[in-house]
Nucleic acid binder design. Structure first.
Length: 880
RNA sequence: GCCCGGGUGGUGGAACUGGCAUACACGAGGGACUUAAAAUCCCUUGCUCGUAAGGGCUUGUGGGUUCAAAUCCCACCCCGGGCACCA
């Protein structure tokens, strides 16, 4: 019998499915009405990969590498005795799928069915240990019913609200976008330049959680680069708000005679030589009656207009205009001009700043351009008070100068002191903005809200802060996305659903008069921000999740995904979990002593590397996307899995070359041949199996050597998998096979069995096939589940089926690993001059004597060494 | 500009807390088997000087610390990624 991947892979995939060997028991039961529900799971292990979206091109080879990497990890955990839960599903809603539908003209609902089928086919072909019974798709009403339910909870608890503001607008996708979905000024999905548009939209209050999102990062075990990305995104700044009285405000009606600025450097207050307000703030002042000259009016108008169109420049130009008014520096009562400039942003701090050109790069540049005074107040060379004329801003720390009574104080100490002196307020600012949830698109879950004009006029509504707005009653959920022919985005600020009267016409839940349904859908990232909560509960029709199951299985034990989601999905999921926890609808205790505190969904996260092709990122436009299909067809899933695991450390990028797959097939064929020795179907193997005892006595030394390699391999493979170093784990298996082949007569059957177990996570099909061959005489006779009529009978018979993937993971014996001897390295002046095998624990004196006697060393040791360095059980170095 | 990650043979990569650089593969060359090819098996394979024995050099570059540096420190170059007028 030859190694035939196609045949055995199909066979075992079918068998595993029929036997449900990858399905943990998620049923919960209540013994009597008073008791809490209990769950049967013993040692649950939630092994999760980031939610895939079913792209039109299908799964590509990089995706397969990720899934394989996650699966390898899950398989060792299963063999180590855990009830591994490794679910799979599709993030099927969203602009990506919808845009593809627009291109092909096929309706997204029909397309989803096709893509789903293709994606699941590809995923199944990899032979992963997925819990297929728990799969889910976000476009399934059974799923988005609960996405909508979550929105309702968020609204009721004040975490979802409406507000009008300048938001990101993608002109190509014709919808608004959250800040996180604008990647350096471009749309995360289609790469078009994003514009600003003033619109009223739904937001989630992520900013309320800024501090917790930041602090919890200390407690969770994540790839450091992802933590850093989140920290930067949250962007915490410690500073102060300082009030500057304004002079000469001719006719401001609300008596606003001051402007507040936010600064992180209150210590430089004496160096403030002008104030700058954002054009937006200027506009607001003008709207409430501030009279300005034509130049100012024109500047504000054109700047605001430009901001709406132009997204960003690589090197933004700073422009500005003097407003005509002055402010008073509260520290020294100096009168300083107020400028309006485009380098001050409306959405951060107070929308106004104090400019300290000597100690801020942007202020410096602006002051140079408009010839404004630059006053040094922090000196790094104190007490030599003469600071040179600056040709760039000095932003570091130092001692204060030119700051009246504070001179000589360190800039750090001066911060709080000066704030106190001028009556400022210590404040923390975050860069993080609230999450814009609305999308003016078709392919998503409709936001479950109703707007009543009449109630709005009477200032009525479900919440006081949002008159006119009501949630859809829970019993009416889901608000089903209707099948409409024209799903094309409108390009107005409304979704295509806004023209479907049968959809939006509805009764007001408050006054029962005619009202209008919200026609925007929610962001796809909301779908994927909670899917991990639904997986163990997909069969639950009554609730989004079951308390008992959730408590038992969450949080996710191992989460693996792309670093590109550092501030997207990973931030949203953390936020939503915290919010649901606070609302009181979600509760999972810290399972297994993890640091989640019941509010961190992913206590352990690792970012995988990307697969490139000839050094370039794979992309549809470059036409270099590699599909796993043809490779699986040609070489089998096992060889492809092994190749992908071998080509680079899992957390590192790797370049795809198909020549390497052949090498893996070669390896598996060698394994196959070796293991035929233990197959009762093979004449050679049958002979050996008859008399295993004879073999054990063959050669004690060789036996010991092989055993040593075997136990070292167990140790290495176990540890390497734990660290996701699959490449070195596989190389260890290769070393082991090499030594098996060198002394085939010394390889006992149990060694072959251990080898197969170690191989099982990487090449599950071959390992299973060979394992069953090896144990065919002890296992019940196998019958394949081809015969449908006998299926039920077969299930009973198969309780005897013992998959290698359910076998206990081998343990190594530390005694067997220990070497009796080691190779002593002899160096002279740090250069290796000789090696000699000596016994462990040898004394320094013995080592020196042995080393000096070596022929290869003698010529270098004519004189007595000046110094001898001895590292026990390692080396000796003579310095001459 | 700032912040991460990285730079090791022809290629992918290995090397625990400083202690044998180049494990394991791929590719290449040579050989065995074969009428032949494929497959398989065996040998060689960092660079360099030398007929050889043997020597010298080598982890992006330049310096430093050390008996000893891919590993630690300083400066710089290159590649990949993220952030970017956030006061």
């Amino acid at each position: 019998m030859r190694y035939n991947p196609k045949k055995i892979e199909a066979k075992w995939q079918k068998k595993w499915l029929a036997e449900k060997i990858y399905e943990p028991d998620l049923t919960s039961q209540r013994k009597n009405s008073r008791q809490d529900q209990t769950v049967k799971l013993r040692k649950p292990f939630y092994n999760l990969m980031m939610f895939p979206y079913p792209s039109a091109e299908g799964l590509h080879i990089g995706g397969m590498r990720t899934f394989t990497g996650v699966d390898i990890y899950g398989r060792i955990k299963r063999m180590q005795g855990h009830d591994v839960f490794e679910p799979i599903g599709l993030d099927a809603f969203g602009i990506h799928s919808e845009n593809y539908a627009l291109k092909t003209g096929r309706h997204p609902m029909k397309q989803a069915v096709i893509l789903k089928k293709n994606f699941y086919r590809q995923l199944a072909a990899m032979g992963n240990g997925f819990a297929w019974d728990e799969r889910l798709e976000t476009n399934d009403p059974d799923y988005y019913r609960w996405t909508q339910w979550i929105f309702v909870q968020m609204f009721r608890h004040g975490l979802a609200y409406r507000k009008k503001q300048a938001v990101n607008w993608c002109p190509s996708c014709k919808t608004v976008l959250a800040d996180e979905q604008v990647i350096t000024g471009r749309c995360e999905r289609c790469d078009s330049e994003v514009m600003k548009k003033e619109l009223e939209q739904w937001f989630f209050r992520t900013t309320k959680y800024a501090e917790r999102l930041l602090n919890n990062l200390e407690k969770i075990d994540w790839s450091e680069r992802v933590k850093i990305a989140q920290r930067n995104w949250i962007g915490k700044s410690d500073g102060a708000i300082i009030r500057f009285p304004l002079t000469e405000i001719p006719s401001q009606p609300d008596g606003k005679h001051f402007v507040d600025v936010f600064t992180t450097r209150p210590d430089t207050l004496f160096g403030a030589t002008f104030l700058v307000i954002s054009p937006e703030l200027a506009k607001f002042w003008m709207d409430i009656g501030w009279r300005v000259g034509d130049d100012v009016r024109d500047y504000v108008k054109t700047t605001l207009a430009e901001r709406a169109i132009q997204a960003r420049d690589a090197e933004p130009k700073k422009t500005g205009v003097f407003s005509g008014i002055y402010g008073i520096n509260p520290a020294n009562q100096e009168k300083i001009p107020v400028w309006i400039a485009d380098y001050v942003l409306a959405g951060y701090g107070t929308g106004a700043i104090m400019a300290v050109p000597a100690h801020d790069e942007r202020d410096f540049e602006f002051a140079k351009k408009y010839n404004l005074p630059i006053k040094i107040v922090v000196c790094p060379h104190y007490p030599e008070k003469t600071c040179p004329i600056l040709d760039e801003a000095y932003t570091g720390e130092g001692h204060l100068v030119g700051s009246s009574v504070f001179d000589g104080m360190t800039s750090i100490a001066a911060r709080a002191t000066i704030v106190k002196h001028v009556g400022g307020k210590i404040t923390i600012q975050y860069r993080l903005r609230d999450w814009l949830i609305s999308r003016q698109r078709y392919w998503g879950p409709p936001i479950p809200m109703i707007y009543c004009e009449a109630c709005a006029r009477n200032k009525k509504g479900e919440r006081n802060d949002t008159p006119g707005w009501y949630t859809v009653p829970e019993k009416n959920l889901p608000v089903k996305l209707p099948f409409i022919k024209n799903f094309r985005p409108t390009g107005t600020d409304r979704s295509p659903l806004a023209s479907v009267a049968s959809f939006y016409k509805v009764r007001c839940p408050g006054c029962k008069k005619e009202a209008r349904r919200e026609t925007d859908v929610s962001d796809t990232f909301l779908d994927s921000a909670w899917y991990f909560l639904r997986y163990p509960n997909v069969k639950n029709k009554k609730a989004a999740w079951d308390a008992a199951i959730t408590k038992k299985i969450l949080p996710v034990d191992s989460y693996i995904g792309g670093a590109e989601h550092s501030v997207l999905h990973l931030m949203y999921a953390r936020f939503l979990t915290m919010a649901l926890h606070d609302i009181g609808v979600l509760n999972f205790s810290a399972k297994g002593g993890s640091a989640s505190g019941g509010e961190e969904p992913f206590p352990k996260f690792r970012a995988h590397g990307l697969i490139t092709k000839d050094g370039a990122k794979m992309s549809k436009s470059k036409g270099n996307v590699v599909s796993p299909d043809e490779y699986i067809k040609a070489y089998g899933a096992d060889a492809v899995r092994m190749y992908l695991a071998f080509l680079a450390p899992f957390e590192q990028d790797g370049d795809f070359r198909d020549t390497g797959i052949r090498g893996m097939t070669r390896f598996l064929e060698r394994v196959w041949r070796m293991m035929q020795n233990f197959s009762s179907r093979h004449p050679e193997g049958a002979k050996r199996l008859k008399d295993p005892a004879k073999l054990r006595d063959a050669s004690p030394t060789a036996q010991h050597d092989i055993q040593q390699v075997l136990h070292r391999t167990i140790k290495k493979v176990t540890e390497d998998i734990e660290h996701l170093h699959y490449n070195t784990a596989i190389s260890a298996l290769m070393v082991l096979l090499n030594s098996f082949e060198k002394h085939p007569e010394e390889v006992a059957q149990e060694y072959g069995g251990v080898f197969l177990k170690l191989l099982a996570p990487f090449a599950p099909h071959v390992a299973e096939e060979l394992w069953q061959q090896m144990n065919a005489h002890t296992n019940a006779k196998l019958k394949m589940p081809n015969d449908k009529k006998k299926h039920s009978a077969f299930s009973i018979q198969y309780s005897a089926f013992r998959s290698v993937h359910r076998e206990p993971w081998p343990k190594y014996n530390p005694r067997l690993i220990m070497e009796q001897t080691f190779e002593l390295v002899v160096q002279v002046n740090g250069k290796v001059r000789g090696r000699v095998s000596v016994s462990r624990g040898i004394s320094e004196a013995d080592v020196v004597a042995t080393a000096r006697a070596l022929e290869s060393v003698k010529p270098y040791l004519a004189a007595l060494p000046k110094k001898t360095i001895f590292v026990p059980d390692k080396l000796v170095n003579f310095v001459v």
